[in-house]
Amino acid sequence: MTRTNEVLAYIVLAAVGILGPVFFENYIQQIAVLWIMVLMASTWDITGGQMGYNSLGNITFFGAGMYISAVVQISMGYDVAEYTAAFGAIKVDFTDTQYFTGIALGIIAGGIGAFLIAILFGIAVFGLRGPYFAIGTLGIAVAAGQFVGTIQYLGGGSGISMPVYPGGVDQRNVFFYILCFIITVISHIFLKWLYSTQFILAINAIRDDEDKAEAMGIKTGIYKVVAWSIAAFFMGLIGAVFGNMIGFIEPIEVAFPTATFGIFMVAMALLGGKGTLWGPILGAIVFHIIKETTWTLLLGWQWVALGTLIIINIVFFQQGIVGWLQEVKPEWFGLTVDSTSKKSEA
């Protein structure tokens, strides 16, 4: 994007981010989820769009961060096994300091834990290409949900209720809203920096021709794992926040929702235009607005409509909004196109 367009976009986003919850107090949670969606789509795009490795399992890190933070937070005052075995019968009674240090440590641990898990899985799956990678990562996400559901220490299939926020509902909403917004902003700044370094060139090279990149001596294996781990770190952070925001976590629907958030992030990145910094953001915003405004009108058919939307998006509108704009209005993006080049010498 050209400089002025970008500044304009930031002003609009900052205005929505800061003024949105002030004027639309009732929708504060929906706006918070919007930022989560933006983060998910943008971090998916690191591997999916920029590196050409289409993961269907990034949601694993969301759930991992959530569960890690839960364990860290509860262990601030209780024995985790006892707590989960009681199925919410134990009411958490944390002091304010206990709660806030717990949540801070939990979020950080969630991010770092997810990061480490991504390194581990990354080594296992990045020798795979194409369909095997996508299915392998999907397998990891499905297995993660099933697996956590069998661990009694983590509450098994019935889940864990998170420590209760010490304060009123309104204050609680604002608190989690700010956390979501700030983490998303940090992730965006980080990506913007990342995409200005040589890192972006290497992962783009992997996308365009991995064998060539290998033959040129690029250590593709390390780049792939690092790219995925970065995505995992932010997914872990936001997963930890989301778990606290919802207040109750369980493996299939909340922590590892392969069929909702897991596919949404891919659909959003594709809708906006993958492989661009702004595409996933735009895609997430459009997707979320469509979803939230039509949800209540569709009366039970909303999931069907969503599945249809995803198919239409993928089949008919692959390049996404930003990709389409780049074709129609390249000058908006500062792209140089020399139309005479194809016919010239050599």
């Binding site: 200005s196 370094t197 040589q198 783009n204 090279a205 365009d208 064998d211 250590k219 390390i222 780049y223």
Partner: peptide, 30 residues
């Protein structure tokens, strides 16, 4: 075989030798 969705300068920049590169140089400035 070139990286056909990147421009020529980017193609050149990423082709720099990776002999004895350190981990941190992954993120070095362009």
């Amino acid at each position: 075989r070139i990286y056909n969705k990147m421009n020529c300068v980017d193609n050149m920049e990423i082709s720099v030798s990776h002999r004895g590169r350190r981990f941190g140089s992954m993120f070095s400035s362009r």
